[in-house]
Nucleic acid binder design. Structure first.
Lengths: 110, 110
DNA sequence: TTTATATAATACCAAAAGGTATTATGTCAA
DNA sequence: TTGACATAATACCTTTTGGTATTATATAAA
């Protein structure tokens, strides 16, 4: 995987993986525990967990025959930061809207 | 495409598409103009633009034989909002770190 | 009216994704 | 030690993705 950013966006592209992250935000889980929440095989869940781990969105700790999957929320920051670049465009739009409304109010009051 | 969220995350998954959004943040562009920034065919660029339009990240306006592609930054908000859910985990981690540092400083000063 | 240009629409291809099923391996427990 | 269990590793299948190349259509310009 080239950039961390790419690993994160790739991981977030699949709805099952986004749901997994949500589940892991409540508590650490084994593969079996994660699988309980989905209608797909454990093998499929494992593949999703592997992609999440590649994107550094989770860490995995071996504990006996189990593997504990743990959310690493900091990794989401690179995606959040990328999106943040567009923040000022949202704000600009908001400002434009505000200006338009104010202008209309002025017209209404004239 | 089911949820708007899925459309957005799907669109963001490809690095070329993320770059296209960056370019469109500077100005509206025709397909040809967008293509100038990449080493792939116009056909390939057009496909990326279609996926971006499906995710409502851009709008397209016909102008003669050209198609003007325009960034719709509001659409990125659904992704930003999804990520925002994890914000408190970052903050929690930050707080934990802060607490640890403070604790260490107290130790150092004792 | 030609002719060039911008995009649309297809057909096609290779690789990646998302899934299943099966087999192998390591570990806990009786 | 033996059996059950959690996960790993493969092999395999289908669909989607990212790309090319080619052809068609609409519009601008000579």
């Amino acid at each position: 995987m080239k950039s961390a950013e790419q690993g994160v966006f790739r991981a977030l592209a699949d709805p099952t993986r986004r749901q997994i992250l949500m589940h892991l935000s409540t508590k650490d889980m084994t593969i079996a525990e994660v699988s309980e929440h989905f209608d797909i095989t454990r093998g499929a869940v494992k593949k999703h967990l592997t992609i999440l781990a590649e994107g550094r969105l989770i860490s995995v700790q071996a504990k006996g025959r189990e593997r504990i999957n743990h959310l690493e929320p900091q990794a989401l920051k690179s995606a959040a930061q990328w999106l943040e670049y567009f923040n000022h465009f949202w704000n600009d739009n908001l400002n434009a809207l505000k200006t338009a409304i104010e202008h209309k109010e002025r017209q209404d009051n004239d």
